[in-house]
């Protein structure tokens, strides 16, 4: 996949210097690396802002279902000769609406439906891709992403999706917060809960498409949840979580890209493993800190002063 094989050779030839320095040097030389870095940063905006909603609303499984069903749309788009990203966007929004409507109508069957949609979407996608001449090798990059192959024009598409996400969240922040926090109370305040719930799922769908570029649809769920979950260990406001999760997302995608460059590892899984390790360390650390804090002021919360 990597076009400039010779450059990789030269960088590994003068080993011994800092691999990070090698990456920075390569970054100056290769436009595809710059594009990849930018794609990672653009994706982290979505993963921070919408990932926070996914974590606090506990809809990670739903997001996973949306992400996997996207393959159906990508496969169909390939087969009929459209841009696979448009197919992905259509499939993501469609399955978000389907899952959301079923949850609103019959509360109980939601997880079964998500599981079904998850598998059906992938099956449709694989069938279409199998029947599309000459495209079968692309399956891997749909599933696991390849940030190094992001074309420069797609950065504009990603920036456009980011803009849609940010503007929507800014305009409807109060309602989205209320529906995420306490649906019953939001309904009593006259907020159209069903509409904003579906809107939130559509925003998740858009974010999934944004992240597929970077890590592929199987690993999307990690970037959607891990940065926000880590942020949630330390900050206790939605806005703070969004900010920190966005920064963490930027760090994970950039550092993942840099770490994978030297030893020629696939970038997506490197980013995810980096995020995953930080998450595990942070979960343990935050628990230890919380316990220490609780020991220091044992009576305060108990008496309810």
């Amino acid at each position: 996949m990597r076009e400039p094989a010779t450059d990789t050779l030269t960088t590994s030839a003068n080993r011994g210097t800092d691999p990070m320095q090698d990456f920075i040097q390569a970054l100056g030389q290769h436009a595809f690396l710059q594009t990849a870095l930018l794609a990672g940063l653009l994706a982290s905006l979505g993963c921070g802002v919408i990932g926070t909603f996914v974590v606090v609303k506990r809809i990670a499984f739903m997001a996973g279902g949306i992400a996997h069903s996207v393959l159906g749309g990508m496969g169909a788009a390939l087969y009929f000769g459209f841009d696979p990203l448009l197919g992905a966007l259509a499939a993501a929004v469609l399955s978000a609406l389907l899952i959301g409507l079923v949850r609103l109508a019959w509360n109980a069957q939601e997880d079964t439906l998500i599981g079904a949609l998850w598998a059906i979407g992938m099956a449709i996608g694989i069938l279409f891709i199998a029947k599309t001449p000459g495209y079968t090798t692309d399956l891997m990059s749909f599933l696991f992403g390849n940030i190094l192959l992001v074309p420069r024009r797609e950065l504009w598409f990603m920036a456009g999706l980011d803009l849609v996400l940010l503007v929507t969240v800014m305009l409807f922040y109060r309602q989205l917060l209320a529906v995420t926090f306490d649906e019953e109370f939001a309904r009593l305040r006259g907020v159209p809960v069903a509409f904003f719930y579906l809107l939130l799922l559509c925003l998740v769908a858009v974010t999934v498409v944004l992240l597929i570029q970077v890590v592929g649809l199987i690993l999307v769920i990690a970037l959607l949840t891990l940065p926000a979950a880590i942020a949630g260990h330390y900050v206790h406001s939605l806005g703070g979580m969004m900010l920190i999760a966005t920064l963490l997302g930027g760090v994970f995608t950039s550092a993942g890209l840099a770490l994978s460059y030297g030893p020629d590892l696939p970038a997506g899984p490197t980013m995810i493993l980096l995020a995953g390790s930080v998450y595990v360390v942070s979960a343990v650390l935050s628990r230890v800190l919380a316990r220490r804090r609780a020991r220091r002021r044992p009576l305060l919360t108990a008496t309810g002063v």
Binding site: V56, F185, A186, R189, S237
Partner: peptide, 19 residues
């Protein structure tokens, strides 16, 4: 009717009443 561990301040909770 909300999760107690939700990252939100008292002030923000009260503000939701202004919707």
């Amino acid at each position: 009717t909300f999760p107690r561990d939700f990252p939100i301040s008292v002030e923000q909770v009260v503000l939701t009443g202004r919707l």
